[in-house]
Amino acid sequence: MRPEQQGVEVAVLVSVGRHPITGRARRADQDARGLELALGLERQLPGSRVSLLHAGPRGEESEAALRGYLGMGLESLTLLEQAEGSDAIPALAEHLAAAPPQLVITGARAERGEGSGLLPYALAERLGWPLVNGLAAVEKVENGVATLLQALPRGQRRRLKVRLPAIVSVDGAAPVARQSAFGPARRAELEATSVPAEPDRELAEWRLAPARKRPKRLKIVKAASARDRFKAAAAKAEGGSGQVLEGVSAEQGAEAILKLLKEEGVLR
């Protein structure tokens, strides 16, 4: 007997992105990949429904960026309208809890604002749902359990089974987003509802400065031949002095991490 494959309700959380060179608003790359994954799922599992959700202020620039997602072939987007600088997490959590979808897909990290990548975790915590990051593909959904393929570094993949509802986040390993078309983007609807804004107090206190490039550890390669150089270049970056702590208490673990950060000059 074929196990039952039924359609799923998927909500894709999308944000207003920022082009890395010009800083113009656009559909964010990871979120768009998340939507692409969802649209692929819709094809794969007939009867699935994909909805788009965004929390934030409504403005000309952000609307154009959000329509970039709609141009991928959706008819509407739910906009939880908030004042600039509000915390999106409570609004999103409340909306999702009110009518829970089975799967929530989001990009791993926003392109503007904090960009801390914490949103999926914070949402998962609030909703009490499992979270899988670095999603590469959804293989199947059967009887409320999804089989997922998670991307690991260097092209490795790990197959996971997750009970739904769940939150998954995608990064560059997910399929590239399809082209956004002008016509559908223009016709689609933004269904805005205002939600009570909780000002993000913490963020208001932060001092924001342009990011600096992180220093990179140089690999010192002592190679005599081209073959050695190639091997060294292709080898995994190994710290060498790494250690595996097992069976230690949380404090001991934290100590070790702190010590390493001090050694590396990350903390002073």
Binding site: I21, R26, M72, R178, Q179, S180, A181, F182, P184
Partner: peptide, 21 residues
């Protein structure tokens, strides 16, 4: 292009670049 978003090969990338840069 405008209705289906089916500009082949590098088309979509070039158009995205034109919009963003």
């Amino acid at each position: 292009t405008l209705e289906r978003g089916q500009t082949p090969n590098k088309g979509a990338e070039v158009l995205d670049n034109l919009i963003a840069t």
